[in-house]
């Protein structure tokens, strides 16, 4: 199925348009990559540090409940910006992503991280103080989510270095 998706994208006119833009708009690739990194930085500053607060590792002056309420609205638009700034490279080089096991790792880590983050943030929104009532479960989920966000960042970089991991394939 991934082969089919890769082929469809590779033969599409959209890909030709995206490649034309990436090659002809001055500075577009590093601009998009920078926007992607800033979006990830905002995600880590909001979601990541909220998880670290739940784990009592940072931002001790603010309650986890306050942080979760404040940053939940940020989640959607930062993810949107990260997606839009990254999708051009996926369309331009579909095989590099759809046929790359490290990209699969990135997606897997992301799904775990975002699922747990949304669960925790939405529960806190519906039941303020819920994090305290189930403290250790919340901390456990926060720890897993934090590690998954770190996994997203690592896998994101290793997409370009897949040969080090799967060198004999």
């Amino acid at each position: 199925m991934l082969d089919d998706i890769t082929r469809v994208i590779a033969q599409s006119e959209v890909r030709e348009g995206v490649i034309w833009l990436l090659m002809n708009v001055p500075g577009l690739p590093p601009i998009l990559q920078s926007v992607h990194i800033v979006a990830v930085a905002v995600l880590i500053g909001t979601v990541g540090l909220t998880h670290l607060r739940i784990l009592r590792l940072a931002i001790w002056d603010q309650s986890p409940s306050t942080l979760m309420h404040r940053y939940q609205p940020w989640l959607g638009w930062t993810l949107g910006v990260a997606f839009l700034s990254g999708i051009a490279f996926v369309i331009a080089r579909p095989a590099r992503y759809f046929l790359n096991p490290v990209a699969g790792w990135k997606l897997g880590f992301f799904l775990v991280a975002i699922f747990l983050t949304v669960i925790l943030f939405r529960r806190e929104r519906k039941h303020p103080g819920a994090w305290r009532e189930t403290l250790w479960a919340t901390r456990g989920l926060s720890l897993i989510s934090t590690l998954a966000w770190v996994g997203v960042i690592f896998a994101g970089r290793w997409i370009a270095y897949v040969d080090y991991l799967y060198w004999d394939e």
Partner: peptide, 15 residues
């Protein structure tokens, strides 16, 4: 990868 991890944490906090 470590550099990116610490840079996004640094910049995220500063922003």
């Amino acid at each position: 990868s470590l550099h990116v991890l610490f840079v996004v944490t640094l910049v995220g906090a500063i922003l």
